[in-house]
């Protein structure tokens, strides 16, 4: 499995964890009666909080991932050559992290799916509001669809890395 695939899997898993954490936190509070469903300030706070948590978690998880990747390369080298060389590890990492035209094409194609899901969510949110549903529902539909879009974007990337990608 290539570096890009591994990194994408880590990103998708982080996205799923963040979305699950948001649902448990926000809907848990509402179900427990601590917060009102109609309290838009609470929803705005929860969403802003989880946007922040998502950014920080992504940074931390990527750092941990790169550390683990380096350890993995070092172990592989130790087994193959009987010794570990820092320069070799750095060179292997650099070679693994090369991003070229195929990565860009896969990124663009999967981003299209992510935007489509987010767009559908945005329109659904507006439709829900038009149909006299609560504004909190609209906010949640939009927020969750953006998150789901980002997760699906990652899944599409993994799919394209596995199955191949064509121009056009």
């Amino acid at each position: 499995m290539s570096y890009q695939e591994k990194r994408t899997i880590v990103t998708v898993l982080t996205g799923i964890l963040i979305l699950a954490a948001y649902c448990i936190y926000a809907f848990g509070k509402v179900n427990a009666g601590i917060e009102s469903v109609e309290d838009l300030k609470f929803w705005a706070f929860a969403m802003l909080l989880f946007i922040g948590v998502g950014v920080v978690a992504n940074i931390i998880i990527q750092i941990v991932f790169h550390i683990l990747l380096s350890i993995g390369i070092a172990i592989k080298e130790q087994i193959q050559n009987g010794s570990v060389n820092d320069d070799e590890i750095e060179k292997t990492l650099e070679l693994e992290m090369v991003e070229d035209e195929m990565d860009k094409l896969i990124g663009l194609k999967s981003m299209r799916l992510g935007f489509a899901v987010a767009g559908i969510g945005f329109v659904s949110g507006l439709v829900a509001l038009m149909m006299d549903y609560s504004p909190a529902l609209m906010m949640n539909i939009i927020f969750i669809s953006f998150n789901v879009g980002s997760i699906l974007e990652g899944i599409a990337q993994i799919y394209y890395y596995r199955k191949g990608v064509n121009h056009g």
């Binding site: 570096y3 070679l95 035209e101 195929m102 199955k163 990608v165 121009h167």
Partner: peptide, 26 residues
């Protein structure tokens, strides 16, 4: 080959397997 062609190994693997048609430049 990836190093010589300035691409990633992943791309070379995909091109070789016929899973990706490279750009004219590559």
């Amino acid at each position: 080959l990836a190093e010589k062609a300035g691409a990633s190994r992943q791309t070379i693997v995909a091109v070789e397997a016929g899973k990706y048609a490279p750009s004219l430049e590559l």
